[in-house]
Every structure is written in C-alpha cells, then in structure tokens.
Amino acid sequence: MIELQNVSVALSGVPILSDINLELSGGGITALIGPNGAGKSTLVSAIARLVPTSAGRITVDGLDVAQTPTRTLARRLAIMPQDNVVAGRLKVAELVQFGRFPHHQGRPAAEDHAAVEEALTIFDLLDIKEKFIDTLSGGQRQRARAAMCFAQGTDYILLDEPLNSLDIFYARELMRTLRHVADTKQRSIIIVLHDLNHAAVHADRIIAMRDGSIIADSTPEKVLCTSVLQSVFGFEIDVETIAGKPISLHFL
C-alpha cells in the first residue's frame, strides 16, 4: 500500500501540492486526471522520490520514501518519468534489461533474462527487440519504456503521462496492455492521463486534481460527471454513457 499523509511539495518556493492525504492499494489501475499544473506529475514524482516533500510522509508498504535506501524502493515501485529522451545507443532489449538493474546490479541472471523476455512478450516488442531506441517511432519507444518499468517486477508501477504524443492506435494499445498487466499480473498501476475517456474505459479508480489538491477520488462513474468535471476543469463537459462507460464529450 502507498500511503500519503498530509503531504505538501514546494518546488523552489512555489507550493505545488498542499496537504494531500491518499491511500493507494489493492491492484488495478488508478488514473490521475486534472488540468495542466494541477500537480499530478508532482504527486507521482513525490511518491517515486524524484522530488522531495516539504511536509508530510509518504510510505510504500510501510517504508518511508524519504528514509528508505533508494535501491530497496526500486524493488517496490517503478516509475516511468515524463518523456525523457534516452541518450546513447541502446537496443530495445537492452533498455528493458535495465528494468532488472535493481535486482542484479549489472550482472543479469537467468531469472532476469526470463523477466525481460516476459516484458518483451507482453508489450509486443519481440519483433523489434534488436532495434535501436533512437530509430523507433514515439509509440514504440513509449511501449519499450513501459516494458522496462514492468520488467522491474515491482508491485507498483507509476507512469507519468505515458500517452504523451501517441497516436490513437498506440495510445489504445498501451492502455489495453496496461489493463492486461493489472488484471493478470496483480500489479497496481498509477497513471497520469490527460485523456478522460482512456481513464473512463480502463481505470478502476480516478483521482481528480486541481491546484495541488484532490477534488474527487472515486470510481470512473462517480468522478466523470458534469458537476465534478466542471469543478476540476472549470468548464461544462457533457458526459454520455456509451457502452456502459462515462464518455466525456469535451470536444463539443
């Protein structure tokens, strides 16, 4: 279980998150939604110890994130940061192998190779595993990075806007793969999303944020309704139930 108690984060004096209390547990996909600057990425980064908290406590399975050795945490949670360019010449399989680094510290054993193979299979990368990352399309690269997080073998996988600059095909593929991972591998996935409808279709729980606070935290049906979305995004969004899912018509 990931637990946040009264967490505040300020980056160079500017408060980004204020007094967040949150519990994340029990598998499934949790989507973080909200306008730009709401603090979604900061929240994910704080849980993954990428930014320090200015107040409060974050624990992962009871381990205080600020105190626990970073290597121990790397076996509990994996983070895919917002699109960072992979420097250097790496093949897809090599990148995914890095996900095993917390376990083997540079000397992969048989189980590490097996985990990489599994990740490559699940994320449909077997055909391109010998390709260099810098020759891939954006969609393939995001898939490879997500596969690396999966290969890390952690209970929690945090993804910061993985759908950034993906076309509808790759975005759908990636979300379906993540759903598959959450269902069959018992991983808890916490994902920052901009597309409300991806959240509606694939998430079990949606946390809506605005101005560094949590506005709503519930099932997609409860969060994705006109009144809540009005208070989150500041304009009226019609929501229709299509195929049993609350689809936001924010284009209209």
Binding site: A48, T70, I79, G88, F98, P102, Q152
Partner: peptide, 13 residues
Amino acid sequence: LLGKPTAIGLGVN
C-alpha cells in the same frame, strides 16, 4: 546515462 529520473527509479543513489 538514462537520465536522472530513470536512474533514481532504478535505485541509483
């Protein structure tokens, strides 16, 4: 070489 956030995520101090 993968960059600071990824390196921290992979347990590098």
